[in-house]
């Protein structure tokens, strides 16, 4: 079975490669990869949800905007997410609903702080399924 995502090591930062049958699924898996760095996904319950609508100049930029939006929600509302219903729409736009819960220090072990998603070595490849890649500043 193909993995949903992989974490790639870099000296000072960290990279995400996520896969899916289509771009929407790959974007969802990239988001799961992001939160797997922040905490243990298994420890997160689906208690709250947040809706997101975004658009960008191209699909690569949309991926960066999507992940940065989630980092923003984590930073300002203290929510860790574990499940994502993502629909990437024509014209490099996206509608998503993300499920998770507020951080509870007694149950969630916070691991790595993520500052932002970058445009370095950024990629959205479509062919047989979809593979996306992004480097995070941590």
């Amino acid at each position: 079975m193909q993995k949903d995502f992989e974490i790639i090591d870099h000296t000072a930062d960290v990279g995400i490669v996520a896969y899916g049958d289509n771009i929407s699924q790959a974007f969802g898996n990239a988001a799961r990869a992001l939160f797997s760095l922040i905490t243990e996904l298994d420890s997160v319950a689906e208690v709250v949800c947040r809706d997101t609508e975004l658009s960008a100049v191209d699909e690569e930029s949309l991926l960066v905007a999507w992940l940065n939006e989630l980092i923003y929600l984590f930073d300002t509302e203290n929510i860790v997410f574990k499940r994502f219903d993502v629909a990437v729409l024509p014209g490099s736009s996206l509608r998503a609903r993300s499920y998770g819960e507020k951080v509870d220090g007694s149950r969630h072990r916070l691991k790595t702080g993520v500052k932002a998603a970058t445009y370095h070595m950024l990629g959205v490849e479509k062919g047989n399924g979809c593979r996306v890649q992004v480097i995070l500043d941590i």
């Binding site: 100049v57 930029s61 500052k115 932002a116």
Partner: peptide, 17 residues
Amino acid sequence: RGFGHEVCGDYVRLLGE
């Protein structure tokens, strides 16, 4: 802190355009 991260992210996007 997060303030600077957001400013940088905003402007990398804007200056990309």
